[in-house]
């Protein structure tokens, strides 16, 4: 609540200084009003890293202009305080706008960053037991390390549905993912998927074992689908080192 009060306090300051500019007839009030309105739009549009430069430039430029103006109009020097007040009003308006907009923007940037971080951290894909590629990569490192120590083999199965029509692809992918999670050994082997591929990492097995899992998987699919010959490709390869899985995420780099 404290943060909300602060941002609303700032908003009040922006509104008050804005209204003061509009209502009271200080020197250059019309020009300042236009500059203020334009500044709000610019501050909203530009990235936050340039906001301060813009704000400081406006403040200093207007100040420099007033100094030159006063040098050229010595008769107005008796009214210096009014010109200073004009400058102060613009400064208060633009600085409070800058802080408020900056705060809101940074909240937004932070939220976007956290959403990306959360996506990377999610272990399973939405509504399924299939791992996200990042989690797949992370767990694969442990599996490969264990395989290295114990001199066991690790095999990667790839099911590529890229050739299937776009209309059906989504539903087909869901069915294939479901079948994959039912085929593998729970909390032992790993499954992940991309837009058009499913990957299964088989732990502590050999070529024959991998072939066995593949056939089991295909039998399961035959129970679900009407295909005689599957319109997608099946591949199996032995995984020797982590770099082979680089495409899945940073954990394997």
């Amino acid at each position: 609540m404290e943060k909300n009060l602060k941002s609303c306090g700032l908003l009040l300051l922006v509104l008050t200084s804005g209204w003061t500019i509009l209502v009271f007839q200080f020197p250059f009030s019309r020009e300042i009003a236009v500059a203020s309105a334009v500044s709000i739009v610019i501050l909203c549009l530009i990235h936050d890293r340039y906001s301060f430069f813009y704000t400081a430039s406006v403040i200093v430029s207007f100040g420099a202009y007033l100094i030159v103006f006063m040098f050229r109009n010595p008769s107005l020097q008796a009214w210096e305080l009014y010109y200073i007040t004009s400058h102060l009003l613009l400064t208060v308006f633009i600085v409070s706008s800058w802080i408020m907009i900056s705060y809101i923007k940074n909240l937004g940037y932070e939220t976007e960053r956290m959403k990306r971080e959360l996506d990377n951290m999610r272990k399973t894909q939405h509504g399924t037991d299939v791992l996200t590629p990042a989690e797949f990569a992370s767990q694969a490192v442990y599996i490969l390390k264990a395989a290295e120590r114990n001199r066991k083999e690790t095999w990667l199965l790839t099911i590529d549905i890229g050739t299937v029509g776009k209309r059906m692809r989504n539903s087909l992918l869901t069915a294939l993912k479901q079948a994959a999670t039912e085929t593998i050994r729970e909390k032992y082997d790993l499954v992940t998927s991309t837009e058009d591929k499913i990957f299964i990492l088989l732990k502590d097995t050999d070529g024959t074992g991998a072939e066995c899992v593949l056939r089991r998987y295909q039998d399961k699919m035959r129970g679900e689908l009407n295909f005689v010959n599957f319109p997608f490709e099946f591949q199996k390869e032995q995984v020797f080192h982590v770099q082979q899985l680089r495409r899945f995420g940073e954990a394997t780099v």
Partner: peptide, 8 residues
């Protein structure tokens, strides 16, 4: 951000 500015 632009919507925000316009609202303001």
């Amino acid at each position: 951000n632009l919507k925000l500015g316009v609202l303001l």
